[in-house]
Design a protein around this nucleic acid. Structure first.
Lengths: 199, 199, 199, 199
DNA sequence: AATGAATGAGCATTCATTCAT
DNA sequence: AATGAATGAATGCTCATTCAT
């Protein structure tokens, strides 16, 4: 009885991957409850029982997708800490770059992103971890003197995450805006604010 | 306002309301799919079939809750347009006030808010309508000279909504922050930005 | 607690009749199982519980309709026994007349007929009683010399009933033929047969 | 021929057939509405959900039974057209034979017949198609000179069908008469009529 | 004479999951 | 590596019926 976790041959490995891809599509489009194992697996040309050759349960594969998203996202954010010592002038450019990369990642992984950020009940946790990383980055930058000091960077990070999430859902994944412009607008807003004396 | 063509008296009206309250709690805690009609009504001391005395279906009552949230939210945002002619100094106070009211509303309707903003599949639409209203307010204020002009107020509204949503979920509903302080921090961030020359 | 069978005043009597009429329509159109008490009663402008003021149960009112049909039908067939002593020449005319009356009755009571003949599970019994009466009539006529003797009048009666039923359903109630012509064709067929030497 | 897109092997095919047989029994005895899926499958030693492995719904299997009956009946009636050129003397024998075959079929498929002729809401249609075929046969025979010409063969067919139906229900399926004698009596009646000068 | 309110009992249907092959 | 066959466990919904008012 082949159980998940067992080493499998090339064919099995392939099937497993195909199932994952199909699952990403299905969960993304229909949400957790409305997605049926049968429809996932039928996209791959397999029958229901085959699913259990590779995954413990519906919940298990969903968790796997959550983890997949989270680990990829984590890799990305780790890279985006600003190297200190950059010039003031470069600041916004560097932040913009980081943001652009994040949006790029979301765009290249639309369905997985939808799962990780909007469908998963774990999304709160995922966002929290994401927030923590951003906070760390921001704090470092703040103590490097790039930002004013009378502002709670934890809150700023939360706000930034809020903006990123919402803008991803309503502008990026829908194809209305591209990573570049989103990043630019956010940076402008967060750095300069709305106040007319900022002009 | 009993649905299934039934004339209702005082008792029925009361039952209907109790069911709605119970439904708000249940949907908020367990989400749409995991919420059972039976557990909603049993909280009111009724049996399953009684539910159908007052609502067409599970879907119908859920939609009613969505509408309830949305109409209440709409009423609130309509009131919060700034009267023009106020002094620059007052600006941040007034915006802060508006935001505080919104958070207050969310706080006083925790469960309904969770449904309207995070559980409902319609939440995207709800947020969009919310965004539109905010955009209108912001545009009025911008053309009144309160904000700098080289910024896309549609995007600012989206960002603001993103922040509000996320902060509501992670700080307000969890009891970590109160409406007042959330409003203040948002206003500070959005008006002044992070840039150290803003200090 | 007003129970069926209790003497009721004028208003109640009226309601009862209206319910019966509505029931005849509903049962006729939708059959027993698909007919709901609620829809019967709502046609009369009453609510469900009122139904039980006049009838024991759904089954009870249905039985009442069956009986209604049967007793009316019985009255009719009792009258149609041929008076003996009529002339050979008149025979077919008289039978035709009887048949016409039956079809006339069916036509005037379309819905009730549909119930009694085609919907009721008791229709077998109803038809049997009908058959018995016809058999008696035929036997009397046979021994009076109107019909040949080497034929089983019980079987003829059954056949006649079969023809009447089917023709009622497919030609009379659908409006394709009238009582007169149906009666004429049946009499011709049953008296003369198809054989070409009968011409 | 398993419905729900499922490939089935020998075992499944067998289960499907057993379910059909059980369904025929159940629907025939209790009618459509009172027949429960659970009692159909439990006769086969299966559980409720298994039913849906082979049939879309309760309605679907019922329709399948209707079709089954109809197609078998059609096959039968197609064969029963008289070959022309037979001798007058043989005529009644041949018709009798055809009728006997039909009754034989009804007798051998009691339950299915009950469904097709008396339970199905489609029975009217089924009878109509049956009537059409009989009409065609009769017309052919009429123009071949076997029957007198001053008679509407459409009406005769309807009558014949009426007799067949009713006699099937009240005499054949109840075991009171056999196909042979029923056929003989019908032929005698329809060919010769009742008129005493036919003797 | 009528009804507002409520319920008991039932039933079709869905789906994740199992297991022998 | 894959599947045919089957099921346990739910759950939404319907409807006849009751009873206090």
């Amino acid at each position: 009885m082949a159980r998940p976790g067992r080493r499998v041959g090339a064919v099995g490995e392939k099937s497993r991957e195909l199932i994952i891809e199909a699952a990403i599509r299905e969960f993304s489009q229909h949400g957790y409850h409305k997605t049926k194992i049968s429809s996932i697996v039928s996209q791959v040309g397999l029958t229901q029982p085959s699913f259990y050759l590779y995954f413990e349960s519906k919940e298990a594969i969903f968790k796997e997708l959550e983890n997949l998203f989270q680990s990829r996202l984590q890799d990305l954010t780790k890279k985006s800490r600003l190297e200190l010592g950059i010039h003031f002038n470069e600041l916004s450019t560097r932040i913009r770059e980081s943001l652009k990369n994040i949006f790029q990642f979301f765009l290249e992984n639309k369905d997985l992103t939808r799962i990780g950020l909007f469908i998963s009940p774990e999304s709160k946790l995922i966002k929290e971890k994401f927030t923590i990383q951003i906070t760390e980055n921001l704090l470092a930058e703040q103590s490097a003197g790039y930002f004013r000091t009378n502002v709670d960077m934890g809150f700023v990070a939360k706000s930034l995450v809020g903006v990123i999430m919402h803008v991803t859902e309503s502008l990026l994944l829908s194809g209305q805006k591209d990573p570049e412009s989103l990043a630019a607008q956010i940076v402008d807003l967060f750095l300069n604010g709305l106040s007319s004396n900022s002009e």
